[in-house]
Amino acid sequence: MFKIIVPLDGTSFAERALPLALSMAQRLGAELILLLTTGDEQKEYILAGPHQELIILNEDYLAKVKASLLDPGLPGHLPPERVRCEVEKMNPELAIGEVTPAFGGDLVVMATHARKGLYLLLKGSVAQKVLSQGSIAVVLLRPQEDIAEVPLPELLRSTGPTIPATGPVRLLVTLDGSPEAENILGPVSVFARQLEATLYLEMVYPSSYSYEESGFSNTPTTLTQKNHQTRQHALAYLKVVQQWLKTQGLEAVVEVRSGDIVDQIYKYSDEIDADLLALATHARGPLGQLILGSVATDVLRKCSRPVLLVNNTIWAREMMETDFHYNFKPEPVP
């Protein structure tokens, strides 16, 4: 069974990931694992002496969260056997990265701040640990911080970012022509099949950029010709990816845009009303920079939609049995 892990720390901010995680568990038929860690100070207390009361309090908190998820009055509530509670006596940044594989986790869903929380994620405190473990993807959600705290039962019935229980799921995938960015296609194809999603493939190039400047080909030097050629190459590239996805039983729409990459991701996600955005980490390609810490950071800061991140060094390209970047050689456009 597919397993989704939701890290919690007892705060309402962390709980804001629960509606999204619940909707994904409902759609995927997945097990939801609620993971609560004790943290630095609590860990010292645990190691120093009696800690039964502390653990009981933590387990009591998770029991209340689980009860809310099992509430028969909650639309699409989960059965008891599909919600598990775990308490770990270690720092959150260690627990999520090290314990997740032991639980057989397939996906981590968590809330993050636009700045501090994401900064910690980028520097390896939390998400870096998770992403480095292997085939574990992370979905990050940036809740609106100006919203007052909401009781959990009410939060679970809110209209925040969720995956629809039925009907189409729209998954926006941003590529930049690099093998690293293409690694997102492995997990995306898995999720898309299970979610019965339509994929939207987007490539964004700066308005004055061309493959010529990346050493791909010798092309005309005028700005108009460069941009025309770049657009044609990008479109041809996305169609190659589109055809491969079709062999996997997945439908995809292709879109090429010019301008600021973050602005264009944001605008296109609004136009198609995307349910989920997907990016590979540490990817750098000829048509953009999909680097965790720059584009991913700015996308999370600007967009309230959930973002799926994967480690580009882990999802082996052999999964896809193709190599778009090196097998596809764009020809100069007259």
Results as ranks from 00 to 15, higher is better:
Gln232Ala: 14
Leu277Val: 09
Pro75Gly: 06
Arg284Pro: 04
Ser132Asp: 11
Ile46Lys: 08
Met203Gln: 10
Ala274His: 09
Lys226Ser: 13
Arg284Leu: 06
Thr11Pro: 06
Gln128Gly: 13
Ile55Cys: 07
Thr247His: 02
Lys89Asn: 11
Leu57His: 15
Asp263Lys: 10
Ser12Thr: 14
Leu235Glu: 15
Thr11Leu: 07
Thr198Asn: 08
His51Lys: 11
Ala63Met: 10
Arg157His: 07
Leu120His: 15
Leu309Arg: 02
Leu121Gly: 07
Glu59Ala: 10
Leu175Ala: 01
Ala30Gly: 12
Leu32Gln: 04
Met203Leu: 13
Lys66Met: 08
Pro306Val: 13
Ala181Gln: 01
Phe103Asn: 00
Ala111Met: 01
Thr322Ser: 13
Gln133Gly: 04
Glu318Lys: 14
Ala127Ile: 04
Gln26Cys: 05
Trp315Phe: 14
Met203Asn: 05
Gly249Tyr: 00
Ser208Asp: 08
Ala137Gln: 06
Leu175Ile: 00
Ile4Cys: 08
Gly177Pro: 01
Arg284Gly: 09
Ile5Arg: 06
Tyr266Met: 09
Leu279Gln: 07
Glu182Thr: 01
Pro50Leu: 13
Leu28Ser: 05
Glu182Val: 02
Thr221Ala: 13
Thr112Leu: 01
Glu213Leu: 15
Arg16Asp: 02
Glu196Gly: 05
Glu98Tyr: 12
Gln133Asp: 03
Thr222Val: 08
Arg170His: 11
Pro168Lys: 10
Pro164Trp: 08
Leu250Tyr: 01
Leu122Asn: 05
Glu154Met: 08
Gln42Ser: 12
Trp244Lys: 11
Arg193Ala: 05
Tyr266Trp: 09
Glu318Ile: 15
Ala63Gly: 15
Lys239Glu: 15
Arg170Val: 02
Tyr237Thr: 02
Lys89His: 09
